[in-house]
Computed example of a mutant assay.
Amino acid sequence: MATGNLIVLTGPSGVGKGTILRSLLQRHPDLYLSTSVTTRTPRPGEVHGKHYYFVTRAEFDRMVVNNELLEWAEFAGNCYGTPRRPVEEQIRRGRWVVLEIELEGARQIRRTFPEALRIFILPPSMPELEYRLRSRGQDSEEAITRRLKRAQAEVDAADEFDIQVINDDLDKALERIETVLFAPVGV
């Protein structure tokens, strides 16, 4: 990993992106995780500046107007975005930056950074994804319905990504991602 680059991790809500990402970062601390900005309310245990930068809609809109975000999207009634400056700074330093973002943001990154490695995490099935969303116990029935509808559209777009990984077994999913990231060139 001599030169900096972007790794974009995308997939439907509830697919296990966060679990995969935490494991990947634990095993490879040289990767830099970009902290996103969001207008949503913090979930229990989430810390401002660590999990997200929680901002008002007015603050978010100002960031968009001032071109302070690499990408941004509205999802499930809330806005999410990637602060530009820290990502560009880390890439200049030669680090690989990981973005955990939604489909619309990933599409924007494809246009802005075509050299980014784009990975889509798929659920084993839609019924399993519904089970995972309900098991979290964090969303209303309305939010779950919205997330499932959106998830189907996201899954339908998986072929837009460089790599698709089915998260039916965490160790296998991690192994596949590590093979892509760390395999010697030409293998």
Rank of each mutant, 00 (worst) to 15 (best):
Y52N: 10
T38N: 04
P29G: 03
N66F: 01
I177Y: 03
G16A: 13
L6M: 09
A183L: 12
V97D: 04
T3E: 08
R111L: 13
F54P: 08
T82N: 10
V187I: 08
P114D: 07
T38A: 05
L24N: 03
R27S: 13
I101G: 06
L133V: 13
A157L: 09
E115F: 05
R22T: 04
G18L: 07
A158M: 00
L31N: 10
E175R: 12
G105M: 01
S125A: 06
Q26A: 06
Y131Q: 14
R110Q: 15
G186A: 11
R118N: 03
E115T: 11
D159G: 03
L129N: 05
L103T: 14
E115Q: 11
E68L: 09
D162K: 02
R132W: 09
I119D: 01
K172V: 00
E160Y: 08
S13T: 13
A173S: 11
T41W: 12
E89L: 15
A76S: 12
N167V: 07
W96D: 12
H28Q: 09
T19L: 04
L133I: 12
L129V: 04
I7H: 04
K17W: 09
P114E: 12
E142L: 02
L33V: 01
E59K: 13
V185C: 01
M1A: 08
Q90R: 15
R27L: 14
I177A: 03
G49N: 08
K172I: 00
G186I: 08
G18Y: 06
E160N: 10
